[in-house]
């Protein structure tokens, strides 16, 4: 079983961090995995994306060209990557930032107003983790009961105070009934 995940949005939305969270969970489970960021000259505000592959076999190319799971946090990302999603794949859309619907009929689309939920719940900046909770709920890409363990690993010592907020964000997305 191999899951190819592409997370895409603006720089500063926590794209790479969300990917890292999935990768650490894979590491703790002893799975094969790769995490590959796009990198560019912009430090902030440009587009960013991150490829994560979780697999039971050694990972070949770490570049995700046809994702099984696309997580789109802004419109340019959905426009750019929707066509690449594998047939039967799943597309997760932050509907507070992306007004249009997924056009393809051969993929499964899910919508969550993650950015709005984040600001309503005092979790601003954590739309990425709300999205992840939502993704975990619908794909089972990682077991929900392992979230806390992976989070403890990925949140650095310096940011320990953010651990609870991140966990709350994942729980919020996981519990969201769209």
């Amino acid at each position: 079983m191999t899951t190819r995940i592409l997370i895409a949005g603006f720089g500063g939305q926590g794209i790479l961090f969300a990917g890292k969270f999935l990768a650490y969970e894979g590491l703790l489970e002893g799975r094969e995995l790769s995490w590959l960021p796009s990198y560019g000259p912009e430090m902030r505000g440009g587009t960013a994306n991150c490829s994560v592959i979780l697999s039971d076999e050694p990972v070949g190319s770490p570049i995700v060209t046809n994702p099984d799971v696309l997580i789109a946090l802004n419109l340019p990302s959905l426009d750019k990557f929707e066509g690449d999603v594998a047939q039967g794949g799943e597309v997760f859309v932050d509907s507070s930032l992306i007004e249009r619907k997924v056009a393809r009929a051969d993929v499964k689309a899910h919508y969550i107003p993650a950015t709005k939920l984040a600001s309503d719940e005092g979790l601003s900046g954590l739309a990425n983790m709300i999205m992840l909770g939502f993704v975990i709920k619908h794909t089972g890409v990682i077991p929900y009961e392992n979230v806390e363990r992976a989070m403890a690993k990925v949140v650095s010592e310096r940011h320990k105070d953010l651990l609870d907020a991140n966990l709350r964000a994942v729980a919020l997305g996981y519990g969201y009934e769209g």
């Binding site: 890292k20 590491l27 094969e32 995995l33 790769s34 590959l36 960021p37 990198y39 990972v59």
Partner: peptide, 10 residues
């Protein structure tokens, strides 16, 4: 290359 430098793996 940039892929190997930037990617994470166990």
């Amino acid at each position: 290359d940039g892929v190997l430098g930037q990617m994470m793996e166990p």
